[in-house]
Design a protein around this nucleic acid. Sequence first.
DNA 1: CGGAGTCCCCAAACCGTTTTGGATGCCCGA
DNA 2: TCGGGCATCCAAAACGGTTTGGGGACTCCG
Lengths: 349, 349
Amino acid sequence: MNLKELAKELGLSPTTVSRALNGFPEVSEATRKRVQAAADAYGYRPNMRARSLATGRAMAIGHVIPLASEHEMVNPVFADFIAGAGEVYSKAGYDMLISIVPEAEQERAYEEFKYKGSVDGIIVHAPRSGDQRIKLLKSVGIPFVVHGRASESDESYSWVDMNNLRAFQRATDFLLDLGHRRIALINGLEDMDFAIRRRAGFEAAHEARGVSHDDSLKFTGEMTEQFGHDTTRALLARPHAPTAIMTSSMIPAIGIRRAIREANLEMGRDVSVIIHDDDLSYLPNGRDDPIFTATRSSVREAGRRAATMLLDIIANGSDTPRTSLMEAELLIGQSTGPAPAHARTTDPV
Amino acid sequence: MNLKELAKELGLSPTTVSRALNGFPEVSEATRKRVQAAADAYGYRPNMRARSLATGRAMAIGHVIPLASEHEMVNPVFADFIAGAGEVYSKAGYDMLISIVPEAEQERAYEEFKYKGSVDGIIVHAPRSGDQRIKLLKSVGIPFVVHGRASESDESYSWVDMNNLRAFQRATDFLLDLGHRRIALINGLEDMDFAIRRRAGFEAAHEARGVSHDDSLKFTGEMTEQFGHDTTRALLARPHAPTAIMTSSMIPAIGIRRAIREANLEMGRDVSVIIHDDDLSYLPNGRDDPIFTATRSSVREAGRRAATMLLDIIANGSDTPRTSLMEAELLIGQSTGPAPAHARTTDPV
DNA sequence: CGGAGTCCCCAAACCGTTTTGGATGCCCGA
DNA sequence: TCGGGCATCCAAAACGGTTTGGGGACTCCG
C-alpha cells in the first residue's frame, strides 16, 4: 500500500494525504482524522527511501567502527555505547548504520557514507593522536560527533568524552595516599587518545608529589584478558615488583587478577588494583561493594549523549562545536589496600 | 555531482552513463572508458537512496538485537557476530542496519524494517522456545536467516546454528569419564533456544550412563560475571558440593573462577570447569594451552555464514530453506581434572 | 455587489537513479 | 536497391514520496 493508492482509496490527492499524515496545517481536522484512520487500517508506512530522496534527509546515523588491525578485534565497549545511542535514535525515528572496517579503510568508509547519501551524520569512534579523520569529515561537510578527542588536533569539533586525565590522576593519588610507590600502568594502545590522557593523569599525580615514575612500569596494548594476565605475570616476577597496578578496562583486569592469584598473592593485600570501569552491562563490577576499586563512567550514557548531541546538530545546525565532558566517579572496592610494609621503604630502583 | 551533471559534462545522456558505469553491453568500450575516467575524476558515487528507489533493492540488511529486559543488557557475543557478518556485507556492497530494541518491541521493529523498505533481509538473533518472530517474518514475506533455531516450531526456515546438544553432550561425557558425578550446569535464560539444547545434551549424557541428575544443580539466568560467581559460591557452600561445573559462556566462567578461588579451592583440581567458548576476540581462551577446557565454536564465523546465506537467498531466491550446522571442538585446558577421590563414592544425594 | 482574505484542496514538478522502448546510422546479404 | 540485423545511443517513464504554486469556494467587509 503506497501513498498514491491510499489517496485514491480516500478520494483525495496524494498531496493532501501526505500533508495530513505529516501534520501540516493546510488540511482540515476532519479529513486529517479520516486519513489517519485509513492509514492505520491499511497499515500504511511511508517508504523511507522515497521519502528521504524527496526530503534530502536520510534519517540515519552512521557508525564506523574500526577493527583493530592485529587481532581483528572489535572493542567490546562498542556494544554498550551503541546500545545507548540506539535508544536515542529509535525514539527520534532514526536508523543506525554500522560499518565495521579494518583500521586502514576507515576514511573510505566515511566518504562512502557521505557520497552515497545513506546517513545524515556520523559518530567517530576511538580517535587517535593526530587523527586525520576529523579533518577529512570537516572537509567532506557532514555533521559528526567524536566519542573522545583527538589529542594533537587544533581543529574544533563536537565531542563527548570522559575526563580521562582527572580520573586517572585521582586514582593514582589514591594509591599514593595508601603508600604505594611502585605503580604499574597497563594501558590501551599507545596512540589511542584515551590512553594518552590516562597516562598523563597517572604521571601528573606522581609529579605533583615528587614521586618518580619510570617507563618500565608502563605498558600499552590491546585491552584483552591475555594482555592483562601476561603483563602482570611478568611484573610480579621482577625483583622489585610493583605493589599496585592500574588498568584501563575491566577486561585486562580479569587477567591481572588471574595472574595475581597464580602467583599466590592476594589482590587488595599484596597487590592493589584500580581499573577504569565502563559500566558494561554484562561485566558489572558491583554497586555496593565493588570487586575492583574503579573510576567509573557509563559508556552507555556516553552513547546517549553523543547521539543526542548529533541529532541536535543535524536539526539546528552548529555554529559553534558542542562538547560534553563526563566526570568519572571513584569507587572504592576490595582490590585496594595499603602498600605492604616491606615495600614501604624507599624505592630501591 | 550527480548522474545528470556528469552526463551533461560528457555530452551523453544519463541513460548511457548509467549503463556504462553498471557494465551493460549496450555501450561501446571506448565510451565506457571515457565515462569511467570522468566518474573517477569527479569522484562521482551514485546516490544509494535514488538507486534503491529505482531498483527496489535497499542494499542493506537489518539486525534486530533485543535488549534483555531485566538489566537492559546487550549480549556481548553480538559484537563478534556482527563483525563477522559485517565483513561479508561490505564485500558485497551491502549496508548493515542495527536496531536495538527492548525485548517486547521486537516484532514492531521487524515490521518497520519491511514496510519502510529500508532492508532487503533480516538476521534474527537469540531465538527463544516457540518464537513468534519466525511466523511473523514468513507472513511479512521478507528473506531472513535465524542465528540459532526456534525449538518448538514446525515452521521451516533458514538458519545457522552450532550443534549445542552434541557439544554439551560430549563435554558432559568427558567429565563423567573423569569420574565426576555431581556436575552443575550454569546455563543461559530458560527459554533461549541454545540453553534448551545444551541442557538436553547435558541430560542425555547422564542418562546414557544411568547417572542421575537432579534439577537442584541446574541454573538459568543472564550470562553475566555476577551470575556465575554468585551461583558458584552458593553451590560450593552446600554440604555435597558439585565437583564440576559447566557453563554456557566465558563471561560467567570468569565469575565461577572467582568464586572457586574465594573458597580457597583450585580450579582443575578441586573443581573442574568446562565452558562454551564463543571465541570472542577480546576474551581469548588461549590456543595451545587454554585456560578453560571448552567447547569452542567461533561466533564470528557464524556471523559470516549467516550473512553469506542471507545474501545468497536474496540473490537467488529460496525454494527450500537452507541450514548450516557448525560442530564445536572440544579443547582440553587447565580447568578440568579427575574428580577428587573423596567425592568418588556413590552420590549421597 | 465586488474584492480581499481564508480555508482546503489539488496538479505538477522534483529528488537521482534505473529501465523501457525506441531511434539512428551503418554494414551486409539478397 | 532495399530490408534486416547490429551496435550505439537517447527520451521519457517509472520508483514513492514531498513541495511549490496555484485555484475554487466561502466569508467578511465596504
